[in-house]
Amino acid sequence: MNPISAERKDNYWTVRFKALGSPCELLVDGDDLDLAQELGKLACDEAIRVEHKFSRYRSDNIVHQINTSNGTPVEVDAETARLLDYADQCFEMTSGKFDVTSGVLRAVWKFDGSDRIPDSARIDEILPRVGWNKVHWASPKIVLPAGMEIDLGGIGKEYAVDKTAQILGAQSAVSLVINFGGDLYVSGPRASGDAWRVGIDNPNASGSEALHQIQVLRGGVCTSGDARRFLMRNGIRYGHILDPKTGWPVRGAPRAVTVASTTCIQAGMLATFAMLEGANAEKFLHEQGTRYWVIW
């Protein structure tokens, strides 16, 4: 179950597909089935394009090329450069808490609900291979030290939503909701003037105990956090958000943070940054002057 579900029971078409490791859907206002199918195809194509290009699980893309470069310079295309610039800026503005090189820590952290906490010795072993500040990035060339990896997974899904919104927006002015695995963007009010209804579910509650419902007219809504991805030992819950500086999960972070913002990627980044703030998540969000929902 996704932490977010968009629903409405009348007068729209839903196109479903699987991409980016998640169920994806496109909600198209009105009763034009041909338009819905045409837009659905474009959305699916774009989601799969972004997945293929930036997934770290593939061996035929730019991310793989960078991760296997062994410290040699790699020249990247314009789109990858923009994403790396973005990652660089996010690293800066969070004082190093948001770090696209922290993925290597997943070799030792398996968040499967068990109590298997890794040895701190193993974490300390990996920690030198984490740190965006060790990467030489001068667009369009990147030099990634050997043993390090970059993972754009924390940005990719939200980026795909916003890119899809741009592509579909150029095709049609129809009101739509692009929902890739719970990260979504609403293009505008429906023809009736109504908003799209978005339910932010409580991942802890059984059934459909929606905590909040918002009626979104326009903008992005994203959730960071997953109640099922954690480790538990001695009564201490270790959430899956890792602090790249210590190699350990951020202590005291909420279970989930949902943020609404102008674009999906802004909402997603703010939600992630808030999780990285741990117990200060709510304070951080409050200071951003954005709309947010926190599930502790």
């Binding site: 610039d85 973005y86 741009q166 951080f284």
Partner: peptide
């Protein structure tokens, strides 16, 4: 902290 959301907005304009 407040400037985070503002800087993010600028960065996002560049990205998209």
């Amino acid at each position: 902290n407040r400037s985070v959301s503002e800087r993010l907005a600028v960065a996002t304009c560049g990205l998209l």
